[in-house]
Design a protein around this nucleic acid. Structure first.
Lengths: 133, 133, 133, 133
DNA sequence: GTGGTCTAGACCACG
DNA sequence: GTGGTCTAGACCACC
C-alpha cells in the first residue's frame, strides 16, 4: 500500500491529532479504502519517529469514532464509518472551531472574501471524501 | 451595560481565549467602536468570576495584536486595527485552524455542503466588521 | 554546561525580559545554534532561582517572535528565525527604544561621539549573529 | 515662546517620561535656552490634557537632575545642567537600554547595518545638543 | 484608581 | 517527564 504519512513535530497541533487527520484525509480522498490494513502501532511509530504511545492514542481516538477497528492479533483495519453523534453533539463540537477560525481570521485582518477563498480552497482538497462515506 | 460577556469555564478553549474571541466579535459586529473603553482588568474579572490574571492575559494578547491599547493607569481602549504580521505569518497562523476545522467536520460526518452552509452562516455574523475597521 | 544565564533580580528590566535578552544574545553570538534544546522551564527556573511561570513567560515571548519552538511534552528548541512582523510594525517597536536611548544618554551628558562609541562596541558583540541566522 | 509639546498618550513610554524627553530635546536643539521659563505645572497639564500630577512628576525628575529649577512663587526655569553622575553610574544606567535595543533589534531581524543606519539618523536629530551643554 | 510583574502552587494535555 | 492554563495574592509604576 502506497499510503504515506506526513507529520510535522514542530506544529502547534498535537502529533496524535495530526495522525488522526492524515488517516481521515486518506479515507476522504479514497487512498484508504474500507478494510484496508493500517500499519501496527509499533511500525507506524518507528516510521514517523514518534513515541508509540502517540500512535496508540491516535488509533484509539479513531477507534472510538468507529473509523478503524483493531482485530486482536490480526492488526488495525479501516472500517465502515458509523454515525455516532447526535446533531446537537456534532454542532457542539464544530461550532467552537468555526468561532475560533472567524475570530483569528478577523484578528489577522482577513477580509470575509479572503477567508471564503481559502476556505473553499481547503474544502476542495477534502471534497473527494464524499463518494467514500 | 453596552457589552456583555459570555464565558463557559468548562469549555476546552481556554478562558483567556474566549475573552479574546468575545471582544474581537464585539469589534467585528460594531458593538465595540474604536476608542471605546473596555472594563478594567479587575472589573471584568469580577464580572466573569475569573482571576484578574486571566483577563490581563486576554488583554495583553489583544494588545499584541494591535486591536486594543492599554494606557497605564487609565484603562484599556479599543484602537484602530494595525496590520502587524507579514502575509506569510498570517497564513501560518490561519491554516492550522482551517485544517482542524475540515478534519473535525469530516470526522463528524459533515458533508462539504453542510460545512459550507454553517461557514457562511458564521461569516454573516462576523461580516459587519468590515465597514467598521 | 554550554550556556550560562546571568540574571539580576534587582534590575529595573523585568526578569522575563532579561531571560529573553540572554537567549537572543546567545543565538546572536552563535552560542545557541539552531535546533539546540534549551533547558526545560522547570530546570531553568531552578537554576535562576525564579518562578517557573517567569521562565515560561520568557519562552512564550520568544516563541511568539518565531525564535524558539516549544514542542508539547518534548521541550523547547532554538529554531530557524522567521520574519514575523511587517516593516511598519518592526519600526514601531524599535523606534521607542532608540528614542529612549538617546534621551537617557543626553540626560546623562553623553556626547554623540561617546554614545556612538559605546553603540558600536555593543554592536560588535551582537554582530556575529548575522552569519548564523 | 514658541516651544510646543508633542505627547502621545497611547505610547508605551509613560507620559511623564515623554515630557522629560521633550524638554531635554528642546534644550538639546537649542529651542529651550538657559533661563527660559517653562509653563507652570497647571498650565502645561491643561495644554497637554494630562493629569497635573504627571507634569509635576516630570518637572521633579528634571529638577533632580539639575536641568530645571523651580523658583518659589516665580515659576520653573531651565538652568545650567550639572553633571551629577559618576562614570560608573552613567554606564550602569545606559547599558541596559543599549542591551535592550540590541536584543529587540535582533529579535526583529534588523541587520547590524540597518540598526546603525537608524541609530545615526536619530543621533543626527539629537546632535545639535552639543553646542548647548 | 489603573495595568504590569512576579511568586506559589494547582491541574491538564502531550509524549 | 514536558509545556499550557488557571488561581490566589503580592508589589510596583503610572495617572
Amino acid at each position: 500500500m502506497a499510503f504515506t504519512f506526513n507529520i510535522s513535530p514542530g506544529s502547534t497541533t498535537p502529533i496524535y491529532r495530526q495522525i488522526c487527520e492524515q488517516i481521515r484525509l486518506g479515507m476522504a480522498t479514497g487512498k484508504l479504502a474500507i478494510s484496508t490494513q493500517l500499519p501496527s502501532v509499533r511500525a507506524l511509530a518507528e516510521e514517523l519517529v514518534v513515541n508509540p504511545n502517540t500512535v496508540a492514542r491516535a488509533y484509539s481516538e479513531l477507534a472510538r469514532e468507529g473509523i478503524i477497528e483493531t482485530r486482536a492479533g490480526r492488526g488495525v483495519f479501516v472500517t465502515q464509518k458509523r454515525r455516532v453523534f447526535t446533531p446537537e453533539e456534532r454542532w457542539r463540537r464544530l461550532e467552537p472551531l468555526l468561532d475560533g477560525l472567524m475570530s483569528e481570521a478577523m484578528a489577522l485582518d482577513y477580509t470575509p472574501e479572503d477567508l471564503r477563498e481559502v476556505f473553499e480552497k481547503k474544502l476542495a482538497v477534502w471534497k473527494p471524501a464524499k463518494g467514500n462515506q
